[in-house]
């Protein structure tokens, strides 16, 4: 078993694994389900999510990737899962009941002011909401992070602008991000997710 780029995601054969701190078992993470795993498999240099970090996860949906992020941060870390849809959040809340380091927040990620008081000292923002104003939401939430904190953005080009070609969108977003942050890494998620890109930024 090899750790990939100090991300606390392990590789065994063709599978990616994370270690559940509660059951002490390794759980498989599928790059076709999780954009984080896809990015790591594509060779992302760093994720910024370490042991004991506190992650603000926007667009948690059923809680597949948040569950693995909670494995990565371990018992000492925290994952705040923000999800707007009540129907989808049912599974998420049940998962949060099992794992004590996950917090469910049923709010719209567009309004960080609503859930600002329910967080403590966030180190990393992970955002995967597939909305038209995705980058705007990301930058707004990056305001909640400490200086030098990381931001991870999984961008869906078809949600950002259907009428433009994905390559054009990715460049546009890169420029937009570089105005306010330092872009550390950028990967296309090609065989696993169509027309998606993954950005890692560091707050100035």
């Amino acid at each position: 078993m090899i750790e990939i780029n100090k991300t606390r995601i392990y590789k065994k054969g063709g599978d990616l694994l994370t270690k559940n701190p509660y059951t002490k078992k390794y759980e498989k993470i599928d790059p076709r389900h999780s954009k984080l795993a896809a990015a790591v498999k594509k060779g992302l240099s760093q994720t910024g999510i370490k042991e004991n970090s506190r992650v603000l996860y926007l667009g948690a949906s059923h809680g597949y990737t948040p569950g693995h992020v909670s494995n990565i941060v371990g018992k000492g870390g925290l994952v705040f899962c923000v999800e707007n849809s009540v129907v989808v959040a049912r599974d998420l809340v049940l998962l949060c009941k099992e794992k004590s380091n996950m917090h469910p927040l049923i709010f719209s990620a567009d309004k960080p002011g609503d859930y600002k008081d329910r967080l403590v000292g966030v180190d990393v923002v992970y955002q995967d909401v597939a909305q038209k104003n995705q980058v705007g939401i990301f930058l707004k939430n990056l305001g909640l992070v400490k200086k030098g904190g990381f931001g991870l953005l999984a961008l869906k080009a078809r949600s950002y602008d259907v009428s433009k070609k994905p390559g054009v969108v990715f460049k546009e977003v890169l420029k937009e991000l570089e105005k306010e942050t330092n872009v550390v890494d950028f990967k296309l998620l090609d065989p696993y997710e169509k027309d998606h890109a993954f950005y890692v930024v560091k707050k100035k």
Binding site: V86, S100, H103, P104, L105, I106, R118
Partner: peptide, 23 residues
């Protein structure tokens, strides 16, 4: 210093209320 257990409890309670109001 924020009490994390208390925070978790409050967040879970909030989520439960919202799930109940969700229908």
């Amino acid at each position: 210093m924020v009490d994390i257990d208390l925070l978790k409890k409050s967040n879970m309670d909030d989520a439960r209320v919202k799930l109940r109001k969700g229908l």
